[in-house]
Design a protein around this nucleic acid. Structure first.
Length: 491
RNA sequence: GGCGCUAUCGUCUAGGGGUUAGGACGUGAGAUUCUCAAUCUUAAAACACGGGUUCGAUUCCCGUUAGCGCUACCA
């Protein structure tokens, strides 16, 4: 029994705590992923908490967007979502506890006053930190003013000297001089808690053991450590994760293009591929070799879970590389069973307004699966299978490299006549057309090009004979005939 | 500006006091081929700089530089 409780006390509890002021972005998704991997690896609990105490900027729509992103990535959580906007009582009580411990004081300075002073300090080149003036107001006076209805924020009284430090699981010991830490606001004058208070109150209340979050929070951490102490609470393990950068090495943001996770779904990224790629941004299992003795990059979710530990997290920021993501995606696409791939690309055809039946698409899928890096690209790669009328193309494309229009015409006419009786099986077609090449005295390259362009409407296309077999006699003959016409009109 | 963090090929990274500094993406060349892909082979490509410590530093320490982060009654 005792053993069991001890064991339970050690079961990790982690959280992903996004602020619904935007969609789930790449950085947030990676943080969520790491928390998820850690929880699953340790058999711990993942809590989802929505940090919506900034009423101005938070919205339900954004919450839904974040949940959608989590679901798409397959990151399931065990508790929540909890909304901070519904837990205001806890924060108020926590603030009172800190006040009672003598580590906080009311501040009567208005936002405007503070801003003015900050501007002036900036001009004079002085420290921008709050000057702590309200800290010196005698308690009786402060109480009198509050009783009189004067608006007051609650600030934490940071020790004047000494330092505050913590041991980060990624960065090691990090220390800040207390003199550098501002008397930060816990409760705004309207009674709404700030981030500083609500994170700590919740992290304690939710009995979190590990805080895995972006490295942009390192500077906030001493403020939180101070509160843990004031509240007599045990410190969790902090693990700060390096940031994800854009190609220009500044923090990834909208001007780098897609940062919303759902935009990657739109682009036709496979969630498993995205997860694999993201997991290796800022984390490494440490030189796991594949069968050829090379470092592995492709890991299933199960392997990722098994391999994930905090000490594999790197300290330096990582640039988001779209090309590498595309490679991962192509790998996953190729590994997908045809039936599944076929189902996955169907929506993109529907969206494009192409009438792609499931059976035909299933037949087409193997022809394009090695030619696409995203699911969406399937449409561009295979649209000619599903259109009535081929998109206009340059008739000059029908003419082989070292040939002329007359040759192209001869090839097309011969092919069309042959197709009238030929069995529409790709092997039979191939044999017949190869023989035709011999008859016409042309090499296979120049022989097949006019046919390919006539049938597919472009120079680069999936394998010709398989494509023709799917298209069928009627369509092929008609398209070749059309090609002949456009060729003769060319002169 | 102040404080904090970081620094291996263009990018993601492995490695670690003595190595030909390894892999992956991307790039170049070649092979294959009905085009394009895929695949295979191959090439170029890195320890930021300066001091220490040491017989020996890319690795450990200190500086410099650069980059990033924080610097709100945002989160």
């Amino acid at each position: 029994m005792l053993e069991e409780t001890l064991l339970q006390a050690k079961t990790p509890r982690v959280r992903f705590a996004p602020s619904p002021t935007g969609y789930l972005h790449v950085g947030g998704a990676r943080t969520a992923l790491f928390n998820w991997l850690f929880a699953r690896h340790t058999g711990g609990t993942l809590i989802l908490r929505i940090e919506d105490t900034d009423f101005e900027r938070s919205s339900d729509e954004m919450v839904e967007g974040i949940l959608e992103g989590m679901r798409w990535l397959g990151l399931n959580w065990d508790e929540g979502p909890f909304y901070q906007s519904k837990r205001l009582d806890l924060y108020k009580a926590t603030a009172e506890k800190i006040l009672a411990s003598g580590n906080a004081y009311p501040c009567f300075c208005t936002k405007e006053e503070l801003e003015q002073r900050r501007n002036k300090a900036a001009e004079d080149g002085r420290s921008l930190m709050y000057d702590r003036r309200c800290r010196r107001i005698p308690r009786e006076e402060a109480e009198r003013r509050m009783a009189a209805g004067e608006a007051a924020a609650l600030r934490f009284a940071v020790p004047e000297d000494g330092s505050t430090s913590f041991d980060d699981a990624v960065f090691g010991r990090v220390e800040f001089a207390n003199a550098e830490i501002e008397d930060f606001v816990l409760l705004r004058s309207d009674g709404i808690p700030t981030y500083h208070l609500s994170v700590v109150a919740d992290d304690i209340d939710m009995r979190l053991t590990h805080i895995i979050r972006g490295a942009d929070h390192i500077s906030n951490t001493p403020k939180q450590v101070l509160q843990y102490r004031a509240l007599g609470a045990e410190l969790p393990v902090f693990a700060h994760v390096p940031l994800i950068l854009g190609p220009d090495k500044t923090r990834l943001s909208k001007r780098h293009g897609a940062t919303s996770v759902m935009a990657y779904k739109q682009m036709g990224i496979v969630p498993e591929a995205f997860r694999n790629f993201l997991s290796l941004l800022g984390w490494t299992p440490g030189g796991i070799k594949d069968a050829n003795g090379k470092d592995r990059e492709l890991f299933s979710s199960e392997e990722l879970i098994q391999l994930f530990t905090l000490d594999g997290i790197s300290k330096s920021n990582a640039v988001f590389d779209n090309d590498k993501l595309a490679w991962f995606n192509a790998e996953y696409i190729r590994a997908l069973p045809v039936e599944e791939l076929s189902r996955s690309i169907q929506p993109y055809f529907d969206e494009a307004g192409l009438n792609a039946s499931a059976e035909k698409l299933l037949a087409v899928t193997p022809l394009i699966r090695e030619r696409i890096k995203t699911l969406r690209e399937a449409v561009a790669a295979a649209d000619f299978f599903f259109v009535e009328e081929l998109a206009p193309y340059d008739p000059a494309d029908l003419i082989p490299q070292k040939g002329d229009a007359a040759l192209a015409l001869r090839i097309l006419r011969h092919t069309r006549e042959l197709l009238a009786t030929c069995e529409f099986d790709h092997a039979v077609l191939e044999q017949a057309l190869r023989e035709a090449a011999t008859t016409l005295g042309v090499k296979t390259g120049p022989m097949f090009q006019p046919i390919r362009v006539a049938v597919c409407g472009r120079k680069n296309a999936p394998p010709l004979f398989e494509s023709m077999a799917i298209l069928g006699r009627e369509v092929c003959v008609a398209r070749i005939q059309r090609a002949e016409e456009s060729l003769s009109s060319l002169g």
